[in-house]
Amino acid sequence: MIKTIDAYGLYYKDLNNMIKKYYEKGIQEFRLKRVSGQRYIGSGIHGKPNIVIEGTPGNDLAAFSDGVNITVKGNAQDAVGNTMNDGNLIIHGHAGDTVGYSMRGGKIYIKSYAGYRVGIHLKQYQDKIPVIIIGGRAGDFLGEYMAGGIIIVLGLDVAADEELVGSYCGTGMHGGVMYIRGNVAPYKLGKEVKSDTLSESDMKVLKKHLSDYCNVMGLDFKKVVSKTFTKLYAYNKRPYGKLYAY
């Protein structure tokens, strides 16, 4: 059964409380209509409901969440998937700053562009490898302090004279990998970042995630994967190891 909630004019606390209460009663599928800026949708739910959002969810969508699946038919605001542990967030539009801050697992797919500091302090642990895929371009400080996980930037709707990523890409990076569809000018990269071509194993990983992304977003996989990608990774797992006098 799908529970439809008209979120228009609802305070976020009441909306989220309604979702939690219905979920506790056994409802797994939600359709939220006319969502207009309500924060923290999907937070604090102990389980894996599927939530479809029509409209624009507010900041901290699915913050601290652990397995919630959300599809946004619209744009999202700041801090999507903040400190998220597991789950899938699909944004059929653009997203704001700090997408996936300190995210440890799960996936965030964004159809269009994303703001500053996307994937900041992205982590990974054992079988948990978070993935963020951005269809458009990403802002400055992409993958800042990145400690694990995968970020993919496709630049599909980017004009020929536009850059795929902003400045200071990967500043403080000490783990994980970024795949950028096209070239990244060296001056855009943080000093901790190394740029390379993709190995066979990289291509395998990339294709696996892209085929899923194209499937979800309704894109032509062959076309998306046809262009040459750049791999970005950290020079050193311990960028600040030699900072101190012992």
């Binding site: 924060r39 601290f64 960028p239």
Partner: peptide
Amino acid sequence: SDAISPAPHHDIYSIEDLRQLIYAIKE
């Protein structure tokens, strides 16, 4: 692996942002 804690929370640049994190935790 090094555990690096950045100097600021990058989701907090103001009192309003702090409120946002406080209520994310409360939710």
